[in-house]
Design a protein around this nucleic acid. Structure first.
Lengths: 116, 116
DNA sequence: GATACCTGTATCCTTTAGGATACTTAATTT
DNA sequence: AAATTAAGTATCCTAAAGGATACAGGTATC
């Protein structure tokens, strides 16, 4: 490491990335956000839109995302009562993360197919 | 979901994000890449530069990254023999992922401090 | 000869992530 | 009355991630 200053900046960088990973990392968090963003509001609709996710996992992820202010859960007092999930305004900032991750995933898929 | 076409694109997006998460996700993979990128070549130097990482975890992450063509491990036949880790050219593409993740982490840190 | 450095590996353990399956409660449709 | 839908929860389990500590085998230094 070249200097104390760079070293501090480096550790801040690591910390920031680890924070993001904690909130948005793992296999399902961004897919759940994207599903809601693309119009799915109901539990079963979200579940059906994401291949392979189970009820239990979706339930956990929804709670995690709500706790982190990324989605909100609303009880619609209709007959019968419905639950609706919506993304918060703050959640829109995650697009800056999701887009590069998607892009890199596609680059890597090509790489693995030996086309790079 | 609005159409079969959009649905397919949505599932591709999910797949790409999950692929990226598999290769670069978790608490340590990007920090290890950044450490090597910023000049650390030796095992102990990398370990010392990343707060909290243990030998065992670093060893595993280095193997994972090597398997995924992101770093290479070279035995320098000097006296004593040294091992050097370097990032591959391909690894440079991960900057497009690391930078937004760092940026978002900082946004989120502010958010949690109630400044948004 | 004893001690320390380097690059890990070995062992053991705890926590988190993820998955399979069944069930609940209330309403709604057939 | 029976079957279905909705929004999950409950239970049980496996796998992966992460962590603590010790130690190995070689070289180098005191």
């Amino acid at each position: 490491m070249t200097s104390k200053h760079n070293e501090r900046r480096f550790k801040e960088k690591i910390k920031a990335i680890q924070d993001t990973m904690f909130v948005l990392g793992g296999k399902w968090k961004l897919p759940v956000i994207l599903s809601i963003y693309s119009g799915n509001k109901r539990f079963n609709d979200i579940a059906a839109s994401i291949p392979g996710i189970t009820n239990r996992v979706l339930s956990k992820e929804l709670k995690h995302l709500e706790e982190n202010l990324l989605i909100s859960r609303t009880v619609i007092d209709d007959y019968p009562v419905r639950i609706e999930y919506t993304i918060t305004d703050y959640c829109l900032t995650t697009e800056e993360v999701a887009a590069p991750l998607e892009k890199w995933g596609k680059i890597h898929q090509k790489k693995l197919r030996g086309k790079m």
